[in-house]
């Protein structure tokens, strides 16, 4: 098990390196720079700015400088928001995104698992068809459609929730639902499929022959295996919840890292983009690793081999 984790961690090194390099050159090779857009900057000041941030050095020098700093855990200063360093900005904004992501994950698992298992227990009845049709809707209605529609109905017309913001508890309801809905839909479909597959297994028949009640069959015998596809999905889902929050944070004006990233991308804030991208990439890799470990641990056949 330890060797498995170590091997996976080693694999991260080249992946991370590819991401750093790709992002770095993608950003730099494009025309324009962080200070190009500002009209009122005199030539002299621009030159000094570029000098100060080392932007006039040859590209490869900048690249190796960046790698060196990165090795020391330094993501550099923000070009456009110099009050804080990139690391500090991430430390400030990420907890908000994390909170939103966790709420959304909660929504996804709670609704998704309940709907999926309910559907699996009564296949081809209304308890199956209704949640599954809703799941299809959840998959087909993108969050940038769902979000505005929820705002329109629940914030503007019914006035149950605020339109935007992230201070009060009720601010957090609509963004969490918007972000979590699609994942709830996937979780529902996956858990239904997983559960149906488990219920068709021979060992479930054995359990019934032993006199286990239906509840016992589901909870003790089928649930464990039926959850596996959902667990596998959680890795990509975590990544999706992070990138999905770009849109949700924009719609609901949530001061999270996603909105910061989009702004940085528009402003060509080099260090900020690099910092957030690397941070996201690290998170996604980490989630994938955790999911692999959890999955291996859930299945004794993998765990003990």
């Amino acid at each position: 098990m330890l060797r498995f984790v170590l091997r996976r961690l080693l694999e991260f090194v080249p992946v991370f390196f590819i991401i750093v390099t790709l992002t770095f050159f993608l950003i730099r090779l494009a025309p324009g720079g962080p200070f190009a857009a500002e009209r009122a900057v005199p030539e002299e000041v621009l030159k000094r700015l570029n000098e100060y941030y080392n932007l006039d050095a040859p590209l490869y020098v900048q690249y190796f400088d960046y790698l060196r700093d990165l090795a020391h855990g330094d993501l550099g200063p923000s070009f456009k928001k110099p009050t804080l360093t990139v690391s500090e900005w991430i430390a400030l904004r990420f907890p908000v995104s994390l909170e939103l992501g966790l709420y959304a994950l909660g929504v996804a698992l709670l609704i998704g698992l309940a709907a999926g298992f309910l559907a699996a227990l009564r296949p081809n009845t209304a308890t199956d068809h209704v949640p599954m049709s809703l799941a299809m809707a959840g998959i087909c209605i993108p969050n940038f459609v769902l979000g505005p529609l929820l705002v329109l109905v629940f914030a503007l017309w019914l006035e149950w929730f605020p339109v935007a913001g992230w201070d009060l508890q009720q601010d957090k309801v609509l963004p969490s639902i918007t972000l979590g809905a699609a994942y709830a839909a996937y979780v529902a479909r996956l858990s239904r499929a997983g559960m149906l597959e488990m219920l068709a297994q021979d060992f479930v028949r054995t359990a019934r022959a032993k006199g286990v009640s239906e509840t016992g069959v589901v909870l003790r015998h089928a649930l464990w295996g039926g959850m596996q596809p959902v667990v596998t999905f959680l890795g990509p889902a975590a990544a999706g919840l992070l990138t999905g929050s770009f849109v949700v944070e924009t719609i609901f004006q949530v001061p999270g890292l996603g909105r910061e990233f989009i702004q940085a991308a528009f402003n060509r804030d080099y260090t900020m983009i690099m910092g957030t991208v690397l941070f996201y990439a690290g998170l996604i890799l980490l989630f994938n690793l955790i999911v692999d470990i959890v999955q291996a641990w859930l299945d004794p056949r993998v765990r003990l081999s």
Partner: peptide, 19 residues
């Protein structure tokens, strides 16, 4: 497998911004 782990949405966003 390795490419799978890249955060592609992010890269596409960067690509669109810059190119």
């Amino acid at each position: 497998d390795i490419l799978y782990t890249l955060p592609f949405t992010i890269l596409v966003i960067i690509l669109m911004v810059y190119l």
